[in-house]
Design a protein around this nucleic acid. Structure first.
Lengths: 156, 156
DNA sequence: TCAACCTTGTTATACTATAACATATCCCGT
DNA sequence: ACGGGATATGTTATAGTATAACAAGGTTGA
């Protein structure tokens, strides 16, 4: 099954955000505290990945006197819950738009507009898994991040 | 075709290094300057990925009065020539053991011993490529990094 | 009541990376 | 020989990313 979510296709952005927040509440209960919830909202509102210091800045601009660990803790929590993903290439974070169904995500990063799309679960039976098995290497988690140009940015 | 090189299998390490250096000379000619060559050797000697500051420290311990840009420049050069790879998860670098045949590498990173194996070229026809095509996204480069436990570290 | 756990606040610092400018060298065309 | 462009290195300073460590409040349950 192929599932794609992300900024390169038209979709109802507001409802998509609402749904993701509702799912987050469900998953976390009252562990989704004010700061964590606010950070998740920020990520959901932004199609470009946000760095920890971007998040920090936004918190501060809202009156929150926050230090770096505040942003990192909130982001780490969201990632641990599967509500957000870290994009290694960018040292930045995006919200997961379908936390329920997201075991091994892959990402398409546009180097021109910086938007990031999350694509369907990565293969458990691909060449990598086969190679790992042959070596006796036990894979726990795989980072897959493709860089290139999104449809919009291909025609300057 | 599946090709695997790396620290999780027995191999003739010395000759493997010699061969890689010879290939580097071939590719670069006299652009493989002393520092660049030395840094490549360091990477070839180490099966764990080296951070830029690890490299810097080694250069300094050899009497070279180097500043951070020296390490970064050498590493950037090696990566640009396909002689080394950057491991995003680790903010660190490893030598490529087969620069000639290395278009879309993937990596297996052991979280216990920190060694990194490079596996055969990643698929151009996998699920990711298919998804990207469906979206009209043009992939230029893909990072694939799996973390887990190597055979040795699975039995504590 | 107290102890364990989780969350947040706060300070300080560690680690990673690059901008910007100076100097030197080599190759090449004239 | 000269000048000019491209490449490589030296050096200073600073930007950007991340975490250690300790303090303090809140909730829960024994």
């Amino acid at each position: 099954m192929m599932v794609i979510s992300g900024p390169f296709e038209r979709h109802d952005h507001a409802s998509c955000r609402t749904r993701a927040l509702a799912q987050a509440e469900e998953v976390c209960g009252d562990r989704l505290t004010a700061v964590r919830r606010r950070v998740l909202e920020m990520l959901l509102e932004s199609h470009v990945a946000l760095g920890a210091y971007d998040v920090l800045e936004r918190l501060r601009s809202e009156g929150h006197r926050a230090q770096p660990p505040v942003a990192y803790r909130a982001l780490d929590f969201l990632v641990a819950q599967g509500l957000a993903h870290r994009i290694e290439r960018l040292n930045a974070f995006i919200a997961c738009h379908r936390p329920a169904d997201c075991e091994a995500p892959a990402f398409l990063i546009c180097r021109a507009c910086n938007r990031v799309a999350e694509t369907g679960n990565a293969p458990k039976r691909g060449a990598l898994a086969r190679d790992a098995r042959a070596l006796g290497f036990e894979i726990e988690e795989t980072v897959i991040e493709a860089q290139g140009l999104c449809p919009t940015c291909q025609t300057p």
